[in-house]
Design a protein around this nucleic acid. Structure first.
Lengths: 152, 152
DNA sequence: AGTGCAGTTGCAGAATTCTTCAATTCCCGA
DNA sequence: TCGGGAATTGAAGAATTCTGCAACTGCACT
């Protein structure tokens, strides 16, 4: 059985591509947690969380065990933290650039809000605390639903 | 403008969640390349590639420049390699587990192909060359279309 | 056995993302 | 300035993924 490589990788990333799933993984970095706690932290209805947990479980990145009445979820051990850290690093830079561009725009007049694109690579002057922007526990209860896209 | 954190992260991963986009990022790790070359390597029709390149560009993870008639694409500098490496590491483990389970199944009879799930964490005996399975350049021209999912 | 809470599963409709084809824009060389 | 190749854009239909409601399974406790 030879693996269709790019599909597998893409599918892996897609599996990570959902706010609730990301939130769960980050919460689990602190150790196993019962569904109840995840539910309390994330604040969505049980069935939705269950759906997303199922996705994570199917991929094998988390495992669940039954612990006297409740179900415990835990990272499947792989270094999920490394991955999230790498992603955070990249995002920090991407967003920093974006911020820079936005500010640049604000400074100049306001030529139609529909700009072409940021021209990355060369952080003019790092805003306050870049890394903090993407800290695992920042913005905890921000709405997990509304859309928030990269510029179109 | 306060960022809806998990959305941003999720969107970042979703942006990576497509075989063609992954392929492009990996090819670009070797340095900037003209669309023509990407096209030759990946073998899909130009407009499709362009669509995917546009997605990558919108996110800011790659940039393009015009170079006498052709367009050159390049990683936006962020350490994409680190990210892909982390992902590879995790995938290696996940798939290794999966393989182990499959083999275990093969060894026993064949009780319905629809098993529950692998029970990760504790690599029995690492098959030949795990890391190689996910090498950036393995399986180059495998079909980039057909579905290849994690077990359902 | 009976009750109730904790989680999960099944689905249908809504929302997104993909894939393709056709049309268009940009440049470079004749 | 015209011809063309190189890429991109626009749009429609197909395919996936999400969301939320309702019904269901498993356990623990009496």
């Amino acid at each position: 059985m030879h693996l269709p490589l790019y599909q597998v990788k893409a599918e892996f990333f897609r599996m990570l591509g959902h706010p609730v799933r990301i939130r769960v993984l980050e919460l689990l970095q602190g150790g196993p947690l019962p569904v109840r706690d995840l539910l309390a932290d994330i604040g969505i209805e049980p069935s939705s969380l269950s759906q997303q947990l199922a996705v994570l479980k199917r991929s094998g990145i988390v495992v669940s065990t039954r612990e006297s009445g409740n179900v415990l979820y835990a990272l499947a051990g792989a270094d999920v933290s490394d991955l999230l850290r790498s992603a955070r690093r990249i995002l920090t830079v991407l967003l920093t650039d974006r911020e820079a561009v936005l500010e640049q725009l604000r400074r100049a007049d306001d030529p139609a809000d529909d700009l072409p694109l940021p021209l990355p690579r060369n952080i003019p002057d790092p805003p306050a605390d870049p890394e903090a922007l993407l800290d695992p526990d920042a913005g905890s209860d921000a709405d997990l639903h509304g859309a928030a896209h990269f510029p179109r």
